[in-house]
Amino acid sequence: MTRISARYLGKRVVVSYITLLVIMTLLFALLRSMPGTFLASMITPEMTPEQIARLEEVWGLNEPLWVQYVDFMVNYQTGEFGMSPTRRVPVWDVIVRRLPRTLILFGAGFIVAYIVGPLVGMYLGWWRGSRKDKSIFASSLVMYSMPSFWVAWLFIWLFNYELGWLKSTYMFTKFPEFEWTIVTTLTDVLHHITLPLLSISFVGWVGAMLVMRPSMNNVTEEDYVFLAQAKGLSERTVMIKHAARNALIPVATQAIVGLAFLIDGSILIEQVFSWPGIGELIVSSVLEKDYPIAQASFFMLAVIIIVMRLLTDVVYTYLDPRIKFGGGQ
């Protein structure tokens, strides 16, 4: 059954597109308002003003700001991100190389957080007020208050420095002394990804739990739950099949926000673990005033979040049969 109309979907796409344009404009304005340009690192003392002017021309910095803005908006919408002045390669190449690594790490982090969080939230919400609920809830709040990069350092200290169990840098072993096979590759990635993944999930799951717990608690008062119990279904079945499914709806919305926070956190986590993804790229490009790279990185993250948001609207209708968008309903 179609629960979402084409018209509504079209509207949401337009709104998403406008949102993207606004974000792009903000990106352009914010990055241009940063002091200085990347040219400072390209100019040598021997260069004459004419040579410096030529450099400005090559990099389009001699154009009026509005021309730069129009170029930027047009180029980005056609997938033309330009060249990186500091890395001397097409920006797209850098993004394409880096983005999958970020998606692997944070995709995995997201999955772990949104499996553990709702499960724990379900359990605590069902047993709300119990000693277990109180103690786990309090502990999770403490975890939630910890900055993920600090947690990361603690884990590095424990699992890498002290115990030597896990790797604290990169996604793969550099210059390995073993042959690359499917098994060694998977083992090696696991060896490297576990610590950053733990650091992300350690804090990340709490967000999901905090939404699931009250949501679960609310549905326990619903008639259909009492009915299910009255039918003699097992508590486990009632909790999971009848209560948790309905309690999940706000979690789905929160997941999008959670994803944005996770990606925010990627900047620091990738830096700490030398994980060569988009987050680490953002830090270095902003500090180097490499506008093309910084803009493209932020742009890609914005696109991901906007698309996810759009998908949520669609998924929502399937999670909750009562919700129908568009079609005059």
């Binding site: 990347f38 690192s41 830090v283």
Partner: peptide
């Protein structure tokens, strides 16, 4: 050679190596 900053002290120095007479 020259270099750019990444904000750390070492790199800040490196940026200056890059940006000023450092190049020379």
């Amino acid at each position: 050679r020259r270099n750019r900053s990444n904000g750390t002290d070492g790199s800040r120095r490196n940026f200056l190596k890059a940006s000023g007479a450092g190049a020379v």
